[in-house]
Amino acid sequence: MIQSIRLEMRQSYAFVARNFNLVKRYWGWEVVWLAYSIANSLSVTFIGAGAGEITGETQIDTDFLITYLLIGTLVWRFLASIFNNISEMIAWERWEGTIEYTFMAPVRRINQMLGQTIFAIVYSFLFTVIIGVVVAAFFDLDFSDADLVSATMILLVGSVSFVGIGVVASILPLLYPERGAQMTNIVQAFFLLVSGIYYPISVLPKWLQYLAKISPATYVLEGMRAALLPGTVDAAPTSFVWPLLLMGLIMLPLGMYLFQRAERYTKRTGKLKRNG
């Protein structure tokens, strides 16, 4: 039993170690991506700083607006990074041509997903912290009333449901060797639009507001704002944990089930072989 657990942990660790080795070898790209992400987050946050000048209003609470946008950009960086790392796990293997070797190894998909998830969460967290520290250094913000424990809990629970969505999206590169990776960007764009990253979802057209309700990012953002910006949201931060837990409980097993079905389909049709 212990031997078996050890073996499975070793398999999951194989993916964690491999991915960190890839980060190390592609360090140049990582630096470029980090610089781009910092610039992107800063430019969004400066909209808050410039709101008074843009509108001509002098009564605008710019600190509040900056914090509101900062939470949006950081949470989105974190969730999008998790989504990318999970949804692209098949695409990476296709680019490198290693997919057959990974699928031929005696590894249960759950162990592969676990390894990929651990990497995605650690990597995304570190990435987001660096961006957050750099961006926050540009502004004089006060987080003394913030409920950091609830914020962390919401972020972690929310990341689980995003892992589930990432697993579902990772099926696309499995089924469509050439176009699958691009298709995952459409999924990501959908969540960016409807989840109220930089604005309250109430400003969206009614039909998009319905779609916002099925996005876990909506609840993560509202929960984070409730925790870090007291008074902005009526509900308690922890009230956003339950919908996120429910979504995670549905999305993770659903993602695994669909992935296994897709894997069987590719083995029947010979789509594993093509290295798109």
Partner: peptide, 24 residues
């Protein structure tokens, strides 16, 4: 197989350790 498929940016050591861990 005839196509030596690896993560080409990684070293033989990194690739082999990854492959071996998958087999426990």
């Amino acid at each position: 197989s005839v196509d030596a498929a690896f993560f080409k940016k990684l070293s033989p050591k990194e690739n082999l350790l990854y492959g071996a861990r998958l087999y426990g």
